[in-house]
Write a protein that binds this DNA or RNA. Structure first.
Lengths: 345, 345
DNA sequence: GAATTTTTGATGTACGTAAATCAAAAATGC
DNA sequence: GCATTTTTGATTTACGTACATCAAAAATTC
């Protein structure tokens, strides 16, 4: 049997009340006594029973998720995962609220963070846009002792407790490396379509891709980056123009969302099998395009993993506990049509 | 506040004792009364507080893991993950025991399963070897109400509750697809090194690979499969002979363990950059070979995920609960040197 | 309708911890 | 050495559920 507070009290030769005072560092314990208790804890290898403690405390974890609105399929998938987690909140003792803000809008995001702060939750998870006012708003949350996790896109220079997302520089490098190997000795330039350089994840992916695609012998010509703001319509126009302007285009790297536009443009031009296309995030659209061959490889971050990881970390931080680093590391999944997970994505 | 048993009692107009009888289906309740209580449960949306219930029951979960001994780096990594989970057993209320058996030995495995049965655990996780006596032993465990999860390698025709591992046919297909694209128009045969055709995962990978590598235009010549029994020394000899016999060898697919032997043979022959090598499982050896370029791509199953998944499923099954399918699906990770996770692996 | 069986209620204890109260003991100041 | 402050002990209630016991009520049998 694992030791309980009673065992510590007996081992240390003090009362239960004193053990409680030490465990929950309440005042009124001499340091000599505190030492005795701590030695007993170490000797017996006592670990607080979190379940029992939460029961006694009637603990619950109000959490707020802030994410961009709009028809970004990945973000909607993320929202679905949050809703799914909410369905399990009875068991997890969480109370999850979702706030939606306009995409790529730093001021609106900062306002939402302040609103979250007003509500006084145990933790906040936020898809960040990089801007000083956002950093400042996160700082205010942390000052109030509210745990903050950035989700999907990180926030440079902020006080966030953790980033629940992938290493986007490595993701870009991986895309570049795949593009290089898939193109082999084939000639022609490569185009890059981003969402916005305002978000950290897109900047990071671009950096990684540029470095890796040109490695080795033949340097590859990269066309200037275009920004489609994660909007399918805008992306389609951009890609259509790129295809028209470059008859010898060898590859396209889409590092943001709006891949429906990319797919449509490639298929309308009838150049889907000739051009090597690599994109991000598994959605119903991108999955179909991978299966049909329009897209050659897909990099993915598992939204479900990210949401569950964010919740675990926020709960742990709210309790002042540590986390299992290895469990919280979000992998960069590479999908070919051969290793696609079964339907529900 | 979420409803408690007291709320149900009030809503249904019965006593606490009756609610308890219904919830834990104890005898002595008229079906009319039972209905009343169940309607109250549905109306209030009551969900049993598992933490409190486990506390009251002083529930613990004795679990037994059975895995092959020997210097298979992946299996040793798996064992390390199990040990790591054991360190957390105080919190998780698990009591984990590990049984080691000789690799690829069906009789020994069946004995170990019977030994596990004798100890009467809540659940058993086992790296399976396919054989009728193993299927039978698993059946005996299930008859005793002991939950069984196959780990890494599945067991055809058995009564196991769940398989905690990857889809190995898809894994083989993925390897084949990568091999095909990486080789491009390059000529030459491809060799396949397996561990043993006695385990399901190796057979599945071979099947997938053979199908995918030869897709498309140029059919690729595949050399007959050789079996290295996951032993580095044996594998090295096999590969050395393959290299000597085939001066034009274009690729090698190692679908089992013992990759240290593969790497040594390739490097001693000085043909590591000329031959496209694809292997399984991220270990310190394979990682170094991926970074140096001796191995071109590595397919991996995350041992930590598998162990944690197996434990979650065993606990859920022991309580008669369901699991989140999506959370328990183990991904096939593709690693290039660009998306390698940071050191500790 | 009396005797029997089945069903229900009332109550208490337990799990391991949190949190509070009040009294007793020890340490400290002067 | 007395008064004061600080520290410690003893005890109780609570969290939500499980489980056991005994008495009371209701249903069933004949």
């Amino acid at each position: 049997m694992r030791p309980t507070v009673h065992d510590i009290a007996a081992e240390a030769g003090v009362s239960l009340a004193t053990v409680d005072r030490v465990l929950n560092n309440r005042p009124g314990v001499r340091s000599i006594t505190r030492d005795k208790v701590e030695r007993a804890i170490a000797t017996l290898g006592y670990v607080r029973d979190v379940a029992a403690a939460n029961l006694a405390k009637s603990r619950s974890y109000p959490l707020i998720f802030i994410l961009p609105e709009g028809e970004n399929a990945f973000m909607r998938g993320l929202e679905a995962e949050i809703e799914f987690a909410r369905a399990r909140s009875a068991v997890e003792r969480t109370e999850i609220t979702i706030l939606s803000v306009p995409a790529f809008d730093a001021a609106a995001l900062a306002d939402a963070l302040d609103e979250a702060r007003r509500r006084g939750p145990a933790g906040v998870a936020v898809v960040a846009v990089e801007a000083p006012e956002v950093v400042a708003a996160v700082g205010r949350l942390r000052e109030d002792g509210i745990a903050v996790v950035t989700l999907v896109s990180d926030l440079t220079g902020s006080e966030r407790d953790h980033f629940a997302g992938v290493d986007n520089i490595a993701a870009g490098r991986t895309a570049g490396s795949l593009m290089r190997r898939f193109l082999g000795s084939r000639e022609g330039p490569v185009a890059i379509v981003a969402g916005s350089m305002l978000v950290r994840d897109h900047r990071d992916r671009l950096e990684g891709f540029s470095a890796a695609v040109g490695e080795g012998v033949a340097r590859r010509h990269l066309l200037p980056v275009v920004e489609g703001h994660d909007d399918p319509t805008e992306v389609e126009t951009l890609v259509r123009d790129l295809l028209a302007a470059h008859a010898d285009l060898a590859g396209i790297y889409s590092l943001g969302a709006g891949n429906r536009g990319l797919i449509a443009a490639l298929e309308k031009a009838g150049r889907q099998s000739e051009i090597c296309a690599i994109a991000h995030e598994l959605t119903p659209y991108s999955r179909a395009a991978l299966v049909s061959g329009t897209i050659d490889a897909l990099l993915n971050q598992d939204a479900g993993h990210e949401v569950r990881s964010a919740i675990r970390v926020l709960k742990a931080r709210a309790d002042g506990l540590s986390m299992i680093e290895a469990q919280e590391r979000i992998r960069i999944d590479i999908f070919l049509k051969d290793n696609l997970p079964v339907e529900p994505a």
